[in-house]
């Protein structure tokens, strides 16, 4: 679990069943186990009203079987995070109040799923999150606005404009990204060598 430093840094919890008329659960490969853990505390009828959407590596057999064993009302197995997110948007478009969203996985997965949900009118209070897996970050370059996925180093080179970016702890839910700001603007060429820190 990433440590909390500043107030815009997201804080994640542990998934637990909430009162609700419909439960939508989205997980990537790392997050699937969090759904299995939630199931231990869930009342028997919970999965009768549950819709599980899995992203990339969750397609691997090791996590697929335990999720199928939960017998949710609907199980959507997708092969890309983008596909899982568009499936989530479709499901939410027809959803009603009482819908609860549970997201588990890397920060990139959580952030982007929350972004889709907030756009659909889901309130923050109806979203539960649990961080599992890598601490890689999604970063937006402050200068050219490119989003860089799976950032593990500090600093990181922008894939859009090439500037070396310092990844600040400052996080935007709206953009689902941390802020990356040129690290050597005052003395171009003085950027430190990137080190693996978000792993």
């Amino acid at each position: 679990m990433p440590e909390t430093s500043i107030k815009s840094r997201p804080v994640y919890g542990t998934l637990a069943p909430q009162p609700g008329t419909r439960h939508i659960l989205l997980a990537d490969g790392d997050g699937a186990a969090a759904i299995v853990d939630l199931a231990r505390a869930a009342p028997p009828e919970f999965f009768e009203r549950a819709h599980i959407i899995t992203a990339p590596a969750a397609g691997a057999m090791a996590v697929r079987a335990p999720l199928r064993a939960l017998a949710p009302a609907v199980l959507d197995e997708t092969d890309r995070l983008a596909a899982a997110l568009s499936r989530l948007a479709e499901v939410l478009a027809g959803a009603g109040m009482g819908t609860r969203l549970y997201v588990a996985g890397t920060e990139g997965t959580i952030g982007q799923a929350m972004q889709v949900a907030l756009d659909a009118g889901v309130e923050l209070g109806a979203i539960a999150t649990e961080h599992r897996g890598s601490r890689a970050r999604r970063v937006q370059c402050a200068h050219c606005k490119t989003f860089i996925d799976e950032v593990t180093t500090q600093p990181v080179a922008c894939s859009g404009c090439g500037l070396m970016l310092f990844v600040r702890d400052h996080y935007s839910r709206r953009l689902a990204a941390f802020q990356g700001v040129c690290v050597d603007a005052e003395e171009p060429g003085s950027a430190p060598t990137p080190e693996e820190v978000f792993t």
Binding site: Q18, P19, G20, T21, G125
Partner: peptide, 9 residues
């Protein structure tokens, strides 16, 4: 609340 409405709403 019993139906799952979040406090913000």
């Amino acid at each position: 609340r019993a139906l799952g409405w979040p406090e913000q709403s």
